[in-house]
Amino acid sequence: MNDEKTYALKSKRIKWFENPLISEDKVYWKPKRAIWFWLAVLSFAAAFGVNVFIAPLQETQILPYRIFLASAVFLLLSLHAAALRNPFLRAKLYHYCQFIFALGIFLSVWDLLTDKTSVLPVPYFPSAASVLQVMVLDHALILKSALYSLRLFFAGFLTGIVLGVSSGILIGWARQWDYWLSPIIKVSGIIPPVVWIPLALSILPGSFSTGVFLIFAASWFPVASMTANGISSTPKKYFEAAQTFGAQKKYLLFKVAVPHAMPNIFMGILTAAAFSFTTLIVSEMIGAKAGLGFYINWAKAWGAYSKMYAAIVIIALEFSVILLIIGIFRRRVLRWQKGIVK
């Protein structure tokens, strides 16, 4: 593999994309022509041009938006400069260029339909520039809300994972626990956690603890049931093999059953994360006095739709980062699966 790579890199006789590692790549398969890259640059330049040369109708501070577009163009060009010496980076960059091109067109059209002509109904569809403007002007409150949501998320989610994994292990391992806990999990699993909001708000001391409880309720079920499933489906041969080399109960549980359940546990955690995101935002919209869910509701009440969109963008970013972190953990723990599972 590596020899092939260096050979192809050193060889002057073939074009950079004729290297079989690049031309036969299944992941970055889009055309390897420079034309799409330049069109992508052009489309962002066009978005910039639209913003500069066509007079706006709305009162928007356009500087952040222009800085954003200019830095996008700058980033593309510098990536290209770096990619000229690295064919693999170049293949990756060119792969995404059609999409980046479409994005530039989308931004131009969006600008035209909002700020420049007000074709789209005014408060509900703000321009990209005004969303960015809000992010810059209101950054203190948005950041505070984002951190608050993050704190609430992790408090509930980690409780859910810890209790979910441990109860899942008990259920999968010991039939007494299975007998008593399984029905509870089955019933509580089908009840959407948000139904507890009215009750939780009146019983629990504050909106934070309510949120923690709801997110815990959302994440406990998938983690516990997937963990239990992974533990109880451990093939007998692994236990028998371990017993014949001298393993005791504790080893069988923690070094055989739990590692076997790990892929399932992570599946449970990812499902729990998705449930928890919804629950987090809903609980903040209803009960809380802080957080991104609250911010969205509050912005809507004031008719500040740009702020709402800004918050949505931040939510998307925040949740992607959380999923990214879970993904990194997962790849580390399950690196033995590389080559077994695609």
Binding site: K237, E240, A241, T244, F245, A247, V256, P259, M262, W336
Partner: peptide
Amino acid sequence: RGFIFQQPALFPWNTVEENISAPLKA
């Protein structure tokens, strides 16, 4: 009394080295 199964019951989550030294750890 060591036992060898028809299908080698190695732990897929452990490397060869970890598998072979598993009895020591157990």
